[in-house]
Deep mutational scan, measured.
Amino acid sequence: EINVTSHGEEQAKHWIELAKRMNLDVEVEIHGDKIIITIK
């Protein structure tokens, strides 16, 4: 399980695309200006 804290939408999209390509599950939480991505 990987937790990524992203401070930008572009960076977040990059991680989500990467996870989808690798067929991994992704959870995205938004806390103000921080985007927390959990890849399982």
Score class of each variant (00 low, 15 high):
His14Lys: 11
Leu24Pro: 01
Lys34Gln: 07
Lys20Arg: 03
Asp25Glu: 12
Leu24Trp: 13
His14Gly: 04
Ile30His: 02
Gly8Ile: 15
Thr38His: 07
Leu24Val: 04
Met22Cys: 15
Glu1Phe: 11
Arg21Glu: 15
His7Met: 11
His7Glu: 08
Asp33Ala: 06
Ile37Tyr: 01
Asp25Gly: 03
Glu27Val: 12
Leu24His: 01
Lys34Leu: 11
Gly32Asn: 05
Met22Ala: 03
Gly8Met: 12
Glu9Asn: 10
Ile39His: 00
Ile2His: 05
Ser6Trp: 11
Lys40Trp: 07
Ile30Lys: 02
Glu1Met: 10
Arg21Lys: 10
Thr38Cys: 14
Glu10Asp: 11
Ile37Leu: 02
Trp15Leu: 07
Trp15Val: 02
Gly32Asp: 11
Gly8Asp: 12
Lys40Leu: 04
Asn3Trp: 15
Ile37Trp: 01
His7Tyr: 13
Ile39Thr: 01
Glu29Ser: 07
Lys34Thr: 09
Ile2Ser: 08
Leu18Asp: 04
Ala12Gln: 04
Arg21Pro: 14
Val28Ala: 01
Asp25Met: 14
Met22Asp: 05
Ile39Asp: 00
His31Asp: 04
Glu10Tyr: 11
Gly8Glu: 07
Lys40Ser: 03
Ile36Ser: 02
Leu24Phe: 08
His14Asn: 05
Asp33Asn: 10
Glu29Met: 12
Leu24Glu: 01
Lys34Asn: 04
Lys40Met: 04
Lys40Asp: 02
Val28Asp: 00
Val28Ser: 01
Glu29Thr: 12
Gly8Lys: 06
Glu1Lys: 06
Asp33Leu: 09
Asn23Gly: 14
Gly8His: 09
Ile30Ala: 02
Ile35Phe: 03
Ile39Cys: 06
Glu29Asn: 04
Asp25Tyr: 15
Leu18Ile: 09
His14Phe: 14
Ile2Thr: 09
Trp15Ile: 06
Leu24Ile: 12
His7Ala: 11
Met22Trp: 14
Ser6Pro: 06
Glu10Phe: 10
Ile35Val: 02
Lys34Ser: 04
Ala12Phe: 13
Trp15Phe: 09
Ile35Cys: 06
Leu24Ala: 02
Gly8Trp: 15
Ser6Gln: 05
Gln11Val: 10
Val26Lys: 00
Ile39Pro: 00
Val26Thr: 01
Glu17Tyr: 12
Lys40Arg: 08
Thr38Asp: 01
Thr5Leu: 09
Val26Tyr: 09
Ile39Val: 03
Lys13Thr: 05
Leu18Asn: 03
Asn3Arg: 11
Ser6Val: 15
Ile2Val: 08
His14Asp: 07
Lys40Gly: 03
Thr38Ala: 02
Asp33Arg: 03
Trp15Tyr: 03
Ser6Arg: 02
Val28Leu: 03
Ala12Ile: 13
Ala12Gly: 07
Ile2Asn: 11
Thr38Lys: 09
Ala19Ser: 05
Gln11Pro: 04
Lys13Ile: 09
Arg21Gln: 12
Lys34Phe: 13
Ile30Phe: 10
Ala19Met: 13
Ile35Asn: 00
Ala19Asn: 12
Asp25Ala: 10
Thr38Met: 03
Lys13Leu: 09
Glu10Gly: 06
Lys40Val: 05
Thr5Met: 05
Ile35Pro: 00
Arg21Ser: 10
Ile16Lys: 04
Val4Gly: 05
Ile37Met: 02
Gly32Gln: 12
Val4Lys: 06
Trp15Arg: 04
Ile36Val: 06
Ile37Gly: 00
Trp15Gly: 03
Ile36Thr: 07
Lys34Ile: 12
Lys40Cys: 12
Thr5His: 09
Ile39Phe: 05
His31Cys: 11
Ile37Arg: 00
Glu10Asn: 07
Glu27Ser: 12
Ile35Ser: 01
Glu9Pro: 11
Ile39Trp: 03
Leu18Met: 07
Thr38Glu: 02
His31Pro: 00
Glu17Lys: 09
Met22Thr: 03
Ile35Tyr: 03
Glu1Pro: 13
Arg21Thr: 11
Ile16Arg: 03
Val28Arg: 00
Met22Gly: 04
Gly32Cys: 12
His7Pro: 07
Arg21Asn: 12
Trp15Asp: 08
Leu18Ser: 03
Thr38Ile: 11
Gln11Leu: 13
Arg21Val: 13
Lys20Ser: 13
Gly32Ala: 11
His31Lys: 11
Val28Lys: 00
